[in-house]
Nucleic acid binder design. Structure first.
Lengths: 165, 165
DNA sequence: AGGATTTATCTTGATGTCGAGATACTCTAG
DNA sequence: CTAGAGTATCTCGACATCAAGATAAATCCT
């Protein structure tokens, strides 16, 4: 069964028969699937009145474990955004009462961002929903194939994980 | 060998042992890899003074074949952006001399966007570079695995391809 | 033919992000 | 102890995007 990428590659092969476009068989599909997953995620979070970017921050704090407290700097690394963006995100999450800013007792330059109870409840509920939805998406793929593909993707991601140290 | 997603999932399993997070073994890696690919793409295009979004539009026109001419509406569907975005993109590409707007002789509401020679040269060079770079990224994956993973990804994307229209 | 609906594109205002720079504090070397 | 380098966070301006609405033209229906 054909998909959009098959059509895309067919067009390129017609127009540029000199190029070998097979890398796109994998990588274009990764990009397109990721775009679709983003939209699906947004929809899953809508039921919990969370934006994707809100979930990203809350989830990083939740994963950190009690007392659900991280520095903005640490949050940057977890969420791969810049410092200006994180300031903005924390501002909005604090305004919604999902996190609060605490002064870092060990470094007066620093700040700690901590999940409130409401924030924890929100992220826990959203996470359960997200996983349920993702399980549906993967429904047609055998566990064996899922494990295989996860292994290949791990190899593909590794060079990038390494370069940022 | 571990990657960032392994660490992520380990944290979730510690904090929420009640949840089954295995869907993320595949889907989180897809999302993260896509983000890395975006950055890599941007870098590859830098040598040609193209932004990713510029390439997306030029590539859609290039794929269409001579005379490299599409309506804005058609470009929306190819690039998955909104009409306001496309107006903006075409404006900028026209200002750079990479495309030009022509009136549609068959529909006076309509416009046709056409690649200039400079636009065609730019996208052809960028495409060759992009593929070279992508081939490097996939270097460690056997052709057999690439074909396998492409097949699984095609299945995962299909539901999304279907739902639009 | 004429009025209503649909279609194609552009305009506008809001949003989230980035990147560069500012500020305040900490650490290190001498 | 202090000067300089380094670090953590925030501020600000620019930018690409989206969503909703405006405009204009084509198409449909009676």
């Amino acid at each position: 069964m054909e998909d959009e990428v098959d059509r895309l590659l067919e067009a390129w092969r017609r127009e540029r028969p000199d190029l070998d476009v097979t890398p796109m068989e994998v990588l274009s599909r990764v990009s397109r699937l990721a775009r679709h997953l983003d939209r699906a995620r947004s929809q899953a979070f809508e039921a919990h009145s969370l934006e994707s970017w809100e979930f990203d921050v809350l989830a990083a704090l939740r994963r950190a474990g009690a007392p659900y407290r991280l520095s903005p700097g640490r949050l940057l690394k977890e969420t791969l955004v810049t410092s200006g963006t994180m300031t903005n995100r924390v501002d909005r999450l604090a305004a919604r009462g999902l996190v609060e800013r605490l002064p870092d007792p060990a470094d007066r330059r620093g700040v700690l961002v901590q999940l409130t109870d409401a924030g924890r409840d929100a992220v826990d509920a959203a996470m359960a929903d997200l996983l349920a939805h993702e399980r549906t998406l993967l429904g047609s793929i055998s566990e064996r194939d899922q494990a295989r593909i996860a292994g290949v993707l791990r190899e593909l991601v590794r060079p990038f994980d390494l370069e940022k140290h």
